[in-house]
């Protein structure tokens, strides 16, 4: 690998989440990173934010990560929101567009959290219909992200990875495998993270997310909270290695939201992902 500007180059597969406090530095320094991911909802208005994103887009590939489409809502997706997402996709021509297997909207109220779904035949039909509508409007396949889970519904009948696999089969969507979310959910709900990875349809995974989480005590039980507020945990790096062995070399993003560090710290996490990929898959890892 050839160092650029004295910095270690990161292969195009590694990206970081673009956050507002880093914007000016990224526009000025153009760091050697393959791509940036942004939350679509932060750029749906006018003014400075989309203008700055256009500057970033000139130098870097982009991934649009939606948090507001609410694909799991029984009342369907909001047509106005979908139209705004479509305009954003047309303007920025992102390499990937992703959303979540969750819901946020009930009776028109947007609850600003990625809320859990019961995994039933009815939910499968609801999410598949919403996904198909979104993919039709955006004229492209979406990547669907597995959520971080804290609770389960008694009437769920389908394990989450099988539920995701069935959505892939019905709608042609891809998957965004959030390795930290698998780890957090496995701990909180008591399932085997490795078995979960094995049950995902490997060919559908188009992106991996890595992030930090927090360990808390609530009502006398230890829980993990997916707060994106710390470095990636060692156990999550280990699970990332397993994910790479199963899915091959997949574009990987490091997310950081709470306690956002300086940009070099975040870039170093992406380099760590690169080293993990090289160690897991051998020297050809950086060549793609």
């Amino acid at each position: 690998m050839i160092p650029r500007d004295g910095r270690q180059a990161i292969p195009a597969l590694m990206g970081i989440g673009l956050r507002a406090p880093h914007l000016a530095e990224i526009i000025a320094a153009r760091p050697a990173i393959g791509w940036f991911e942004v939350h679509a909802e932060n750029y749906m208005g006018g003014g400075a934010a989309p203008a700055q994103l256009e500057r970033v887009r000139r130098d870097h590939a982009l991934s649009l990560h939606g948090v507001g489409l609410s694909l799991g809502s029984a009342e369907g997706v909001d047509a106005a929101h979908l139209a705004r997402l479509r305009r954003l996709v047309e303007r920025f021509e992102p390499a990937r567009v992703s959303e979540h297997l969750s819901w946020s909207v009930a009776s028109g109220a947007y609850l600003n959290d990625l809320l859990p779904l019961p995994y039933t035949e009815e939910t499968l039909a609801v999410v598949a219909a919403n996904l198909e509508r979104a993919q039709e409007a955006l004229r492209r396949a979406l990547l669907l992200e597995n959520p971080s889970r804290y609770l389960r519904f008694r009437h769920s009948t389908i394990p989450e990875p099988q539920f995701l696999a069935e959505l892939v089969r019905r709608t042609g969507c891809g998957l965004l495998c959030d390795v930290n979310n698998i780890f957090v959910s496995a701990r909180n709900l008591g399932f085997d993270a490795m078995a979960y990875l094995e049950a995902l349809p490997a060919g559908a995974v188009g992106e991996i997310h890595l992030a930090g989480h927090a360990a808390v005590m609530r009502d006398g039980e230890a829980l993990l909270i997916d707060d994106h507020g710390a470095p990636v945990a060692p156990e999550v790096w280990a699970l990332y290695g397993a994910a790479l062995r199963r899915f091959g070399l997949v574009a990987t993003l490091v997310e950081w939201d709470k306690n956002l560090p300086d940009l070099p710290v975040l870039l170093e996490e992406a380099r760590k992902a690169e080293r993990a990929a090289a160690a897991t898959l051998g020297d050809h890892a950086g060549a793609r």
Binding site: L111, Y150, L151, R152
Partner: peptide, 20 residues
């Protein structure tokens, strides 16, 4: 009656909503 785990775990979602 619908959730396996309520209480503190529901509070995580409630806190996400109100804090954010």
């Amino acid at each position: 009656g619908l959730v396996e785990e309520g209480g503190a775990r529901l509070d995580i979602h409630r806190n996400n909503l109100f804090a954010s």
